[in-house]
Design a protein around this nucleic acid. Structure first.
Length: 508
RNA sequence: GCUCCCAUCGUCUAACGGUCAGGACUCCAGAUUUUCACUCUGGAAACACGGGUUCGAUUCCCGUUGGGAGUACCA
């Protein structure tokens, strides 16, 4: 019998969801779906001081937008409720006490001030950050150094205490990581991490192990920043639930920014989004841009994230979510960190804009237009326009410039591209052309075009000399599809209006 | 400082002892387009260094260097 795959993503609701976080979700999700397993979202809100209003909902919104919704979560329910660690608080104490009984943990009464004093007292040039470890724990105030009676008195008196793991002194802790393979640590070099805080809440270290066990997690994928504390978790598994029940670990390589680790600041500094969606910290009011609002398609977003540290072994780069699920394998995830490249990210999005039917993202573009007060016509026309200009758009926001002139006259004309070669005979040409257009019964592209070319021949002007001015009049700049196509789309009235307006500007 | 992780074009990557080291993004040139883009063709661009092992190393081992992470009653 094979055990059902169960994976989890366990964010703390402290702020935006960044690239690396979404990619961790993605790999978890892909792995679970590939193996017919469950993807669980657990909220790790054990630090009350860092709780941020709205952060949890924001995470759900991001996952929904990405199409990576969990099977179980505080929002979706599930058999292992509750999925918020703050609501599981009573659970953790018993395991901490079990560890004390087994001799694997102890009470520590040191105050924050005492800890600080210890750190400064033992700080040297060779050891800038002294740890609470085997060498110094016997010099501190804890149940290892105090007589049992005294410990009992302190606890009975309500003295604040924490419970720390007692790291063995000379043990090599090994484990097999799905990505890094065998990793080993010397237990004597790891400090006695706090397991249960003075407020009764567990730290991440205890909570992650207890909940992974209680929720039946079979595979635990997380960022590489956790690799250093893995020995603590391995030991906890050994002491509490047995190494045989421990999930398979995979520590994902980090996503780097242009200079070192990717940070919120990089986004602002280099002009690319870092979070999945816009996020404003309610406390500091600090705003961080999101991929969604920047104009990314969710399909492109997960595609580009998937390729940042993983590849299928083929030369295929564009993958649908279904293809990713089919092809994903944790063994093909890279060991080294990947630098995020916004240019390549845009390329992925452009490919997806071209690949997807415009109807898939027409509503998003509509919202963008509404925000810019661009008037909309009927849907058929709208779709037709998007189809016409989609090849020119890397971001959804590019549609504003590339499609806006189909709905309203350009606000400004690139007169500089026309003026140097502008002359009276061209003005006469356009005057005449307007009159001819007015008479046109059938407003179709070929008539508009042949009228233009015939008149040009008649006036003895090269059509090429005239097309650019016409384009500038209709579009505003040197871009867009074929001019006559545009005239055909915007209609007789708008075409003539825009030519006349252009004429008045060029002939000043 | 200490611990751990990592190392192929500028960037993302392929290669699992023998390849002209392949692809993609970016950049450059050309074709196409009477604009811009798309598309197509071509080009520039990498095995960090030093030792081993081997008939043969980008590939395996060791060291050096470089980069990253951790070193909280944060996750």
């Amino acid at each position: 019998m094979t055990i059902k795959v169960r994976v989890r993503f366990a964010p703390s609701p402290t702020g935006g969801l960044h690239l690396g976080g979404v990619r961790t979700v993605l790999y978890n999700y892909l792995f679970a779906k590939k193996h017919g397993g469950d993807f669980i979202l657990r909220i790790e809100d054990t630090d009350q001081t860092r709780f941020v209003e709205g952060a949890e909902k924001y995470i759900f919104d991001c996952l929904k937008w990405c199409g990576l919704e969990p099977d179980e979560s505080p929002l979706h329910g599930g058999p292992c409720q509750p999925y918020r660690q703050s609501e599981r608080k009573p659970t953790y104490l018993q395991y901490a006490l079990q560890l004390i009984e087994q001799g694997n943990a102890y009470y520590a009464f040191d105050t924050p001030e005492e800890l600080e004093k210890m750190r400064s007292d033992y700080k040297t040039a060779e050891n800038p950050s002294p740890q609470y470890d085997a060498r110094i724990r016997m010099k501190m105030s804890n149940s290892l150094t105090l007589p049992a009676q005294k410990v009992k008195e302190l606890i009975d008196a309500g003295t604040r205490y924490v419970i720390r793991i007692k790291m063995p002194e000379n043990e090599t802790i090994r484990f097999d990581d799905l990505i890094h393979h065998e990793v080993s640590f010397d237990s004597g070099l790891v400090d006695d991490k706090v397991l249960l805080k003075a407020d009764g809440m567990p730290t991440y270290h205890l909570a992650v192990v207890v909940d992974d066990y209680l929720m039946g997690i079979t595979h635990a994928f997380r960022g590489e920043e956790w690799l250093s504390s893995a020995p603590v978790h391995i030991l906890l598994w050994k002491y509490l639930f047995g190494l045989g029940n421990m999930p398979q670990w995979a520590h994902l390589p980090l996503i780097l920014g242009p200079s070192g680790k990717l940070s919120k600041r990089d986004g602002a500094k280099y002009g690319f989004p870092v979070f999945a969606m816009n996020w404003t910290d309610p406390r500091s009011n600090e705003f961080t841009e999101g991929f969604k609002e920047k104009g990314f398609l969710p399909e492109a977003f997960i595609n580009l994230l998937a390729m940042l540290g993983w590849n299928s072994g083929t030369e295929q780069e564009i993958f649908t979510k279904e293809e990713l699920i089919k092809n994903f394998s944790i063994e093909r995830v890279h060991k080294s960190g990947a630098k995020f490249d916004f240019e390549k990210a845009k390329w992925f999005n452009q490919e997806w804009i071209k690949k997807l039917p415009v109807t898939n993202y027409a509503d998003s573009v509509k919202e963008l237009f509404a925000a810019k007060n661009i008037p909309l016509k009927d849907d058929t026309y709208f779709i037709e326009v998007l189809e016409l200009v989609k090849d020119r758009c890397a971001l959804l926001t590019d549609f504003i410039e590339q499609a806006g002139y189909f709905f309203q006259a350009p606000a400004e004309l690139d007169a500089a591209s026309v003026m140097p070669k502008w002359n009276e005979s061209k003005k006469e040409f356009f005057d005449q052309y307007c009159q001819d257009l007015e008479q046109l019964n059938e407003w179709d592209v070929s008539s508009i075009e042949s009228l233009f070319k015939n008149l040009a021949t008649e006036k003895n002007i090269k059509p090429g000399e005239l097309q650019l001015p016409l384009r500038i009049m209709l579009v505003g700049g040197k871009f867009g599809p074929a001019v006559f196509e545009i005239a055909g789309m915007i209609g007789k009235v708008a075409t003539i209006e825009r030519i006349n307006k252009g004429l008045s500007i060029f002939t000043q």
